[in-house]
């Protein structure tokens, strides 16, 4: 039992940190620029494919640096030559732009790498056990994933709260005209924010690529859960995104372990439910069966009860 709890907790934290890696860039872009970026998970996917391809030539560790940079450059180009023009036509144009971009990237990936999952297995250089727990070795790449995720949090949190550039970025979001009047290049700051957000997604993709499956549908599969994290955590709050990711990861993991249904509740209450009663099918659904739906339930509840999210400062 202790073993199951320990591993469930560990699994929940790892999954939560993976979600944080994915969503930190999105919350950054969303809060700073007001852009609901549907192509964010596509940047994650590009990171996975790029690192797979690059690692074949120069090895895993250089790819870990080069692939996110490449994705960051693409992100910068998207902002400079696409989003900036769409921005003039309002939020709907922006959303549609990123929506279309997500499809384009998916098709681009299909053309280059095919429709099937690619053989993106854990690189040999990091394929060794990190430590042993209850006689089970824990893979190093998961430990690496946790480290990168925590590092990302520190970088973003300190970067925006404690550095000069962070302050300018924050200022240019609420008072762009004043910031440019002071001599700062506001459009360039936006490019920078979008590039950083994309690069973080790309970095998440390098690790997520072999933790999950590298295939053209991965962006579409992960897109919804990332939005859940951002809304739960509160727009623009990096600590909020971290907490929301962890909550989702841990709740979902433990829910899977719970083989209880409404029938067990009735049994405790001494209520008899016949097998042919009309809602029997509903009562017999175990919590474990519904686990992957729980984050969306949390999303709906949060939007009703506290629309600004856990640590958010403004309404969604």
């Amino acid at each position: 039992m202790l073993e199951l709890i320990t591993f469930s907790l560990l699994n929940g934290i790892v999954y939560g940190l993976l979600l944080f890696m994915l969503s930190s860039g999105l919350t950054l872009i969303w809060s700073m620029m007001g852009v609901l970026n549907f192509a964010h998970a596509s940047m994650f996917m590009l990171g996975a494919y790029f690192s797979y391809q690059i690692a074949r030539y120069i090895g895993f560790w250089p790819a870990l640096v080069v692939a996110p940079l490449l994705v960051g450059v693409i992100g910068a180009a998207v902002e400079r030559y696409g989003l900036r023009h769409a921005h003039k036509h309002g939020a709907v144009a922006e959303i549609l732009f990123t929506f279309g971009l997500a499809y384009l990237i998916a098709e681009f990936v299909v053309m280059l790498w095919g429709r099937n999952p690619i053989a993106n297995t854990v690189p040999a250089v990091i394929d060794f056990p990190a430590f042993t727990l209850f006689g089970t070795s824990y893979p190093f790449y998961k430990a690496l994933m946790m480290a990168i995720s925590v590092g990302m949090f520190a970088f973003l949190y300190l970067g925006f709260k404690r550095t000069r550039i962070g302050l300018i970025i924050q200022a240019s979001l609420t008072h762009p005209h004043m910031v440019s009047a002071l001599g700062h290049d506001v459009p360039r700051i936006f490019v920078l924010v979008f590039a950083i957000g994309s690069a973080l997604a790309g970095l998440a993709g390098v690790i997520g690529g072999f933790a999950l499956l590298t295939e053209p549908n991965m962006a579409a599969a992960l897109g919804p859960i990332v939005f859940v994290v951002v809304v739960l955590g509160g727009l623009g709050s990096i600590p909020g995104a971290l907490i929301a990711s962890m909550v989702i990861g841990i709740v979902q993991t433990f829910a899977v372990a719970l083989d209880y249904s409404m029938l067990d509740v009735f049994r405790v209450l001494n209520v008899q439910v016949a097998r042919d009663s009309p809602l029997y099918e509903v009562y017999s659904i175990k919590i474990a069966q519904a686990a992957p739906i729980i984050p969306y339930l949390l999303l709906v509840l949060m939007l009703i009860l506290r629309p600004k999210g856990l640590l958010g400062t403004r309404e969604t």
Partner: peptide, 8 residues
């Protein structure tokens, strides 16, 4: 997306 809880 993550089957580790099931595997546990």
């Amino acid at each position: 997306q993550d089957f580790s809880p099931y595997v546990a």
